[in-house]
């Protein structure tokens, strides 16, 4: 890999790292928001006794889904740190290799060619880097799988939101602002969906450009 390639790759990694931070924050905040809105709906429904039982079922489903989303989001996040760490280990090893090569260059090619130990050391470095890359790719695949699961969860949540809107329309006369509640829920789910989609694109770009 040329030094330019190395720099570009390092930049890409940093983009993913920063995107990971943003995605984690956005997803966390939106999921908290979803949870609160679902709970809010449940409280509203509970206050009105049996009249809004239909919406109560939806709100309950919404909250349960929100809990599942939080769980899959936490699985996702558990894998972000290892990915970053793996990428940083690659950086670390490349740095060592770079130092090594600077040293051998300063000693001249002749010495380098004759010394089997140095040659082996260089191979060792490269082997470690290859292994670390393999490891990083494995974690990346895992992470993309977690993102896919999270996206499925979001889709199911969107389905529940639609159900909620229908239920809300049925009991519109109750004086409880369930239509608004449903709209707010839909908005919160859309925020999660967008955050997850953007993050997935970042990860895929990293995967495609992988070395």
């Amino acid at each position: 890999m040329t030094p330019e390639q190395l720099i570009r790759q390092q930049q890409r990694v940093m983009e993913v790292v920063n995107a990971s931070f943003r995605a984690r924050q956005d997803i966390d905040r939106a999921l908290r928001d979803i949870d609160r809105r679902a709970l809010n709906a449940m409280v509203l429904v509970k206050k009105h006794g049996n009249a809004l039982a239909g919406y109560g079922v939806v709100a309950q489903a919404f909250r349960e889904r929100a809990a599942l989303l939080r769980e899959s989001a936490s699985h996702l996040q558990e894998n972000i740190a290892p990915l970053i760490e793996a990428q940083m280990r690659i950086l670390q090893q490349q740095r060592l290799l770079q130092n090594f090569e600077q040293m051998t260059q300063s000693h001249g090619e002749a010495l380098h060619g004759r010394c089997v130990g140095l040659k082996n050391t260089r191979q060792d470095f490269q082997k470690i880097i290859t292994q670390e890359r393999e490891d990083a790719r494995r974690i990346l695949r895992l992470l993309l799988e977690e993102v896919r699961i999270l996206q499925e969860g979001v889709e199911e949540q969107e389905y529940v939101v639609t159900n909620g809107r229908i239920e809300a329309a049925l009991v519109e006369g109750s004086g409880v602002p369930l239509m608004r509640v449903s709209r707010d829920m839909g908005e919160a789910v859309r925020i999660v969906a967008r955050a997850v989609r953007d993050y997935r694109q970042q990860l895929e770009r990293l995967q495609n450009e992988s070395y």
């Binding site: 790292v17 740190a81 290892p82 970053i84 760490e85 793996a86 940083m88 280990r89 950086l91 670390q92």
Partner: peptide
Amino acid sequence: PQVFAALV
């Protein structure tokens, strides 16, 4: 590497 991962 671990400091950096924790930093994020």
